[in-house]
Design a binder for these strands. Structure first.
Lengths: 343, 343
DNA sequence: CTGAAAGCGCTTACAG
DNA sequence: CTGAAAGCGCTTACAG
C-alpha cells in the first residue's frame, strides 16, 4: 500500500528545489545548529516546493529513523466504547482525548488485541504497541506480567489507577480511595453508626485492597465487617440482620443499588453508601452517598506523565514523580444519615 | 525512542537460530511458495528462538517495507469523546470498535489535528494519516477539498454519511434519509395532515439536502413549508400560526424539543416529529416520532468497506459498491397523531 | 553551507 | 533451500 501514485517524498521535493534530500530534511526539521547553516534563500526555495506539493512526512519512516511520533497508545483490558462501559471509561476517554489534543498527539487504540478469557492481551504476535511512543493502560485489573514486561523493555507507559502487582515500580495516576474511604467512615462515626457491613466482590485489584485496608484502619468506635458477595444476593437481608449493622456500604454504586433492591423494605432504616463514584446514582429518589472522583483529570494527568516519560531522557526519570494519587471528594448525598434516621 | 535496550529484532533472532535474517522474515510471514521452501526443522528452530525472546515486529519497519499494518485511521471533524458528542458519535464509535475487533485492526484517532474555525483539519504539516492503511471520516459536514485530495492521492478512505461535495465518487456508507422522510410524510397524509412546517438549521450537508429534496417530492395532498430557523426561536408561534400547519417537523430531535418548548401551550394541538434518530427523546412525556437509524451498523459497514478497499487491488475497485445507503425505520412514536388530535 | 553515506527494521526479488 | 543485496522514506553524523 505504499508507493501510491499521489505520494510525494523528500527526494521529489529535493529534485524540484534543486537541493539534496538531506537539505530538505534539515529544513523540515528546522535543524539549525553550529555546523549547519542553511541560507534563507535555500530554505525559502524548499519551503515553496513543499507548499506547492502535497508532501507530508511518512510517519513510519520517521519512526524508523528514531524520532518519536506523537502517537500515544491506549490499551483497555475490555472494550471501551460500548454503551455499558461508558459509565467507567467515558470520563477517562474524554480526559485522554482532551489531553491528546492539547499535547498534539494522536491516539492509537489497540482494538485488535486478541481476547482471551474475556480480557485483551497486550502482547501478541502482531502487536502494534511499538508504533506508539508510549502507552496508557486502562482497566480495573491488569496483568502483572504485562506490566513487568513493559518495565523490562523500558517501554514508556502509565497505568490509570494505582498498581502494586509488580516488584518494579510502575508509573501510575490513580485516585486515593484509601483516604476517601477513611473520610466516609469518619462521617459514619459522626452520624452515630457503630456497625457497618461492607459488601464487595471478590476482586483482587489494588483499589479494592485500598478500600479494604482503609476499612481495617477504621476508627475504634466503628466496626466494619467486610462481606464478599457472590452473584446471588438473596441471603443479604439475613446477613444484614445478623450483623446488627446500621449502615451498608458497597464497593461501587451498582452493587449498593442491587443490595438496596434485595433489601427492599428491610433496608428502610439503613444508611447506604458506595465507596466509589456516585454521580447520577439515586436510591429511592435520594442521591447516593459516596465519592466524587476526578476521573477526567486522572486521565489527563496520566497522559501528561506519559509525555514526560517519553521526552525526558531515562536518566532524568528519577526526578519525576511517577506514582500519583489524586484526591477525590466525599459526596455526602442523602442515603448516609443519622443512625436510625428514616431513609 | 527506538533502539531501546529491550528491543529484539529479526537480526537478533537470526543470530540465535543460526540462520539469516531473511529466513526469519520468511518464517514469520509464512512465505512458502514455489521457489521458497523452508524445511520444518529450520522453521521450528526459528519459531523457538522467537518464542524464547520478546520479539515483536516493528510496525514502522513493516509499513515502510510496503506491507499494510492493520491500522485504520479514524478522523472526526469535532472532538468525539466529549459527553455532548456521545449522542451522535457514541453508536458510531461503538460500531467502529466492534468492527475493528473482528477485523483484527487497531484504530488510530487523529486527535492532534489542529482545530481551525472549530473544525479539525485532516491534512497538516505533521499528519500521521499515512501510518494508517486507510481512514474513516466522521462528521456532519466534511471538507470537500479533503475528500478530493484523498481521492487524488488514492488513499483508501470511507466517509460515514452520504457525500456529494466532490466530482470524484467518494466511498461512503450512510443512512437513506430521503426514503425515511418520504415514509414519514406518507404517514402524515394518512393521519389527515395537509400542511406541515419543516424547521431546519441552515446546514449545507448532504443529509440536510436529502431531507429537503424528499420534502420537495411530498405527496400532492401534503404541503410542506421549509423554514430555516436561527438561534432565536421566539417568533416560531407566529410562524406556525400564520402557516396554518397542523404538524411541525424538524431536522433533528433537539430542534423539535426546542420548538416544543417555545410553542408551549400554543403547540398543544400540533403533531411533532424529527426527521432523525429519536431514541430516548420524549416531548411532554410522549415518545417523539421520527426515525430509528442503524448507526452502529453504518459504522461497522464503513469499516468493512474500508478494509475491502485496502485489500483489493485498485483495478478491482470497480467491482465494489462504494456508495451504500442503509435503510432505517420510521419510529411512529406518540407525537405524530391524527390531525387535530389531542397531544 | 551542502551533499553522499550509513542506518533504522523490515520485505522481496535475485543469486547461488 | 538459504543468504546477500536493494529498497521503503527518513535522520543524522561525517566529509567536503
Amino acid at each position: 500500500m505504499t508507493g501510491k501514485p499521489g505520494k510525494v517524498t523528500q527526494r521529489e521535493i529535493a529534485r524540484i528545489a534543486g537541493v539534496s534530500q538531506t537539505t530538505v530534511s534539515m529544513v523540515l526539521n528546522d535543524r539549525d545548529g553550529s555546523n549547519i547553516r542553511i541560507p534563507d534563500a535555500t530554505r525559502e526555495r524548499v519551503r515553496r516546493a513543499i507548499e506547492q506539493s502535497t508532501y507530508v512526512a511518512d510517519p513510519a519512516a520517521r519512526r524508523l529513523a528514531g524520532l518519536d511520533n506523537k502517537i500515544l497508545g491506549v490499551f483497555t483490558y475490555e472494550s471501551a466504547l460500548t454503551p455499558e462501559s461508558m459509565d467507567f471509561y467515558g470520563p477517562l476517554l474524554n480526559g485522554i482525548e482532551r489531553a491528546a489534543e492539547s499535547l498534539g498527539c494522536d491516539l492509537l487504540f489497540f482494538t485488535s488485541s486478541p481476547v482471551e478469557e474475556g480480557r485483551r492481551r497486550l502482547f501478541h504476535r502482531n502487536t502494534r504497541l511499538r508504533l506508539a511512543d508510549g502507552c496508557v493502560l486502562l482497566g480495573q485489573q491488569m496483568d502483572g506480567e504485562d506490566l513487568e514486561r513493559l518495565v523490562a523493555e523500558s517501554f514508556p507507559f502509565v497505568a490509570v489507577g494505582r498498581r502494586d502487582e509488580t516488584d518494579a515500580p510502575v508509573p501510575y495516576v490513580g485516585i486515593d480511595y484509601g483516604s476517601l474511604t477513611g473520610r466516609l467512615l469518619d462521617r459514619a462515626v459522626e452520624l452515630g453508626h457503630e456497625k457497618v457491613l461492607y459488601l464487595h466482590r471478590d476482586l483482587n485489584s489494588p483499589t479494592a485492597r485500598d478500600r479494604l485496608s482503609a476499612i481495617g484502619r477504621a476508627p475504634g468506635a466503628l466496626a466494619v465487617a467486610p462481606f464478599a458477595v457472590g452473584a446471588d444476593l438473596s441471603d443479604l437481608p439475613q446477613v444484614v440482620a445478623r450483623s446488627g449493622a446500621t449502615a451498608v456500604f458497597a464497593e461501587d454504586a451498582f452493587l449498593i443499588e442491587d443490595a438496596a433492591l434485595v433489601l427492599g423494605g428491610a433496608g428502610a432504616g439503613l444508611s447506604l453508601a458506595a465507596l466509589a463514584e456516585v454521580r447520577g446514582h439515586r436510591i429511592g429518589g435520594r442521591a447516593l452517598s459516596g465519592f466524587h472522583t476526578p476521573r477526567q483529570q486522572v486521565a489527563a494527568e496520566a497522559l501528561a506523565l506519559l509525555q514526560q516519560l517519553i521526552s525526558a531522557p531515562a536518566e532524568e526519570h528519577g526526578g519525576i514523580e511517577i506514582q500519583r494519587l489524586l484526591q477525590g471528594e466525599v459526596a455526602f448525598g442523602e442515603t448516609l444519615t443519622v443512625r436510625g434516621g428514616a431513609r
